[in-house]
């Protein structure tokens, strides 16, 4: 089925709608956000008028419904075929997820553990966005080397800011096009195209459950951003970090974690090293093993946020499922290996 929304200024917005799906849900899935609040048929914010096509209305508060023929609430309107709906607002009032593309200069490059680079970019000012770096911790950016087709997605490790600063932790892949450029040719002052923010790997801040963050390899970047966000907002939610690496020297410098521990007194940390050298006193094993040990003693089933290379992800997900963590409580982001 196709839904056509017609705004007051006659813009026509078309998107697909599945059987049993409400118009508002279908619009949001298509990246269109008409004014709406409760999503439960009660506030009256998403009122509109069906001018063509058949529909049914789900449960709603009668006083929230607009009077007159075809009056509906988008959040409760279930199309029974193609429908055309008049919105009481203008096209500009329909929110959209715009994904900006901007230019950024390399400001700094430094080693971040063995085989990884901490890359700092500085955005060039944009007419519409200024120097705002607007994202939700956990999201990523697509970086393109200017004049090439070489494009890679990397999660942001820092926080949204108004200084144009973007921090990444990038594991160098031997022979990889972006890695070779970054490891061998890139210099401070070089310019990249930056597209984003992208991705849905973000904290569910409405969940009352404790959080368990599991990172492996460069999967630490989005988790660092989430933890820094929690620290910045003095979020008191219980949180445990499991950070896995193959060898100790691949772990991030200890001071990163010390700063987080100081700002988040409730933060528990398990550093797990798969093949530790002699003298390693932390957990020995994979991050999935560490998660297994953590879940075995956890008082409450946490929300799990996991980010890392594919094999690590699979192991972590199967451990979580075996320990009875519901699928809805597992949030995952794969990084390029």
């Amino acid at each position: 089925m196709v839904v056509t929304l017609v705004t007051r200024d006659a813009a026509r917005l078309e998107f697909p709608c599945a059987s049993g799906q409400d118009v508002l849900g279908a619009a949001e899935a298509a990246g269109l956000y008409p004014p709406a609040m409760c999503h439960e048929g009660s506030c009256g914010m998403c009122q509109a008028r069906v001018v063509e096509g058949a529909y049914e209305m789900g449960p709603h508060t009668e006083s929230a419904m607009p009077a007159g023929p075809g009056g509906v609430l988008l959040c409760r309107c279930l199309p029974q075929g193609d429908v055309t709906i008049e919105l009481p607002c203008t096209d500009a009032q329909v929110g959209r997820h715009k994904i900006p593309v901007r230019e950024a200069e390399i400001e700094a490059m430094a080693q971040a553990g063995a085989g990884a680079v901490a890359l700092t970019l500085r955005l060039r000012p944009d007419a519409e966005l200024g120097l705002a770096v607007d994202f939700i911790p956990g999201q990523y950016m697509e970086l393109t080397i200017l004049g090439t087709e070489t494009r890679r997605a990397y999660s942001l490790a820092n926080l949204p800011n108004w200084e144009g600063r973007l921090d990444f932790i990038i594991r160098l892949q031997p022979g990889g096009a972006f890695s070779s450029w970054l490891g061998e040719r890139a210099a401070v002052g070089d310019v990249l195209n930056v597209r984003g923010p992208l991705g849905h790997f973000v904290l569910d801040e409405s969940s009352p459950r404790p959080r368990c963050l599991v990172g492996g390899g460069c999967g630490m970047a989005p988790l660092l951003s989430m933890l820094r966000h929690m620290a910045d907002f003095q979020d008191s939610q219980p949180v445990h970090l499991i950070y896995g690496a193959n060898r100790e020297d691949e772990l991030l410098p200890a001071e990163e974690l010390d700063a987080l521990r100081a700002a988040l007194p409730q933060l528990g940390v398990t550093l797990s090293v798969w093949r530790p050298g002699p003298g390693w006193t932390g957990f020995s094993g994979t991050s999935a093993d560490a998660l297994d040990a953590y879940l075995a003693t956890a008082a409450e089933t946490p929300d799990i946020y996991v980010c890392g290379p594919p094999r690590m992800m699979e192991a972590v997900m199967s451990t979580a499922q075996r320990r009875g963590v519901p699928e809805a409580q597992i949030f995952a982001e794969r990084v390029q290996s």
Partner: peptide, 24 residues
């Protein structure tokens, strides 16, 4: 004023109120 009145039953009693406030 905007409290849920679905099927004539007044009050927000689900996981999230009309205003967006969650149950917790």
């Amino acid at each position: 004023e905007q409290t849920s009145r679905v099927d004539g039953v007044a009050g927000c009693a689900s996981a999230k109120g009309v205003c967006g406030k969650d149950e917790t």
